[in-house]
Nucleic acid binder design. Sequence first.
RNA 1: GGCGCCAUCGUCUAGCGGUUAGGACGGCGGGUUUUCAGCCCGUUAGCCGGAGUUCGAGUCUCCGUGGCGCUACCA
Length: 489
Amino acid sequence: MSVRVRYAPSPTGSPHVGNLRTAVFDWLAARKYGGQFITRLEDTDRDPKRYKPEYIREIEESLIWLGITPDEWWVSGGPCGPYIQSERLHLYREAADALIARNMAYRCYCTEERLAEMRAQQQAAGTGTGYDRRCRWLTDTERLRLSEEGLPYTVRLAVPLEGTTGYTDLVFGDVTFDNRTVDDQVLLKSNGWPTYHLAVVVDDHHMGITHVIRGEDWMPSTPKQVLLYGALGWDQPVWVHIPLTLGSDRKKLSKRHGATQFVDFIRMGYLPEAMFNFMVLLGWAPGDDREVMTVAEILERFDLNGIGRNPAIFDYDKLRWMNGEHIRRCDHGRLAELCRPFLAEAGIIGDPPSEEENETLAALIPLMVERMHLLSDAPALMAPYFRDPEEPDAAGRRKWLTGSDARSRLTACVEAFSSDGSPLTAECAEETINRVAESLGIPRAPVIHTVRVAVTGTMVGPGLFEALAVLGRERVVRRLQRAQEWVVE
RNA sequence: GGCGCCAUCGUCUAGCGGUUAGGACGGCGGGUUUUCAGCCCGUUAGCCGGAGUUCGAGUCUCCGUGGCGCUACCA
């Protein structure tokens, strides 16, 4: 079976994790079952309050960054183009005309004012809202008169007055609606542009879409589209609604819940494979207990039938944990590359970095990998290795750089580390520290702590010997000497 | 209000009539150590309620309750 699936974003908002998650499911379905992943721009809402062309860039960036570049889309074209709805307007008009000719749709001349008034009355009366179908029952002469007057009109779907409309959903099973509760939806706006309902059906049909994978919030409008497929004489796709992603307040994820825009996650230093892994787990679970997976492993286990039905709350804590897991599995060379922009932006390394900075970074990665959760942790974690600390951490100073004992430890260390000219390895550093402790007749722990604060300015960090090796003898000695001024009595 | 969907630890979930209800995140406790992190071990906490079907129900049916979604010439 060849599947064709599509992601249909609208440039009326920055794509968010909920949206991209459906794109991930689309991509997975296409790859898993050997088909094409198509992305189509649904830009039929041109209200300047909502439509923002810059969102198109964000959509493109997000998809590419995630590694799910579409097989067919407006960027690279394809056999069913154009992939931008505003460039396909004639198709929707043709469909609308065909619908009118078959009495499956009709022209509606009601003004927005009348519609608003009608809705207000319905709400006041506490009855269900929906178009009252006034224009559906216009006589031919009335229709002719209105037409000759050249009044603007919309085209509405003529929903059957009785019976039911249903469909089978791959995730939710059979869903049925009483036609009396289905509205005579506007199909073509008065400006001649289609609404979502018409455009999506026309394009999905012409583009040969076999599976419509989209958010559960589309379920209530599906009967309108099912009706449209029938009226147009087309075969329905397989419907696959996936449960929503919620914020911590259990409401549909939105800006209110902190970072939800996908590009924010990119900027915050999440790894694409971690986002992919995490998003797919929101609604789908592999058979076994392995949760941290590569894209390849997910693909191997993925099955559309395994998608659950309950909405999932987006758990930032778990995402953070998972990102750390993927960082630890990340190739060190690639990780260094990924950290670079974060370090450069913080002004810790140059842009481009010097050769020495690159070497330091490469040496640092293995030491930092288990303390990073986000790439954006890199600057704070790594700063002490690129620049001499301005001053020691206050608590660290109080604890390890205070009193005559601290002073003598430092003095002994300066001497011990500068008495040798060989490159400073971790083994050599350990040996030196051990020797100092021995000569002072104390355990090595206090020496280690004092040196750590003296050299890195902080009490936390990777194993000291490895850290000293990264810094090199010259910088270590320099910092130890300078730290002597930091000692307080 | 109408329509639709959903309902297992705080969160993500496994479970597809018989289980000590399993795993993961988080929390808590302990271990390792040179601090932090990591790692290891342990622990915490759950089947929304009520009927029914059945020898037996988290699992099937119905009702209730709750939550969410949709209800635009937005998608």
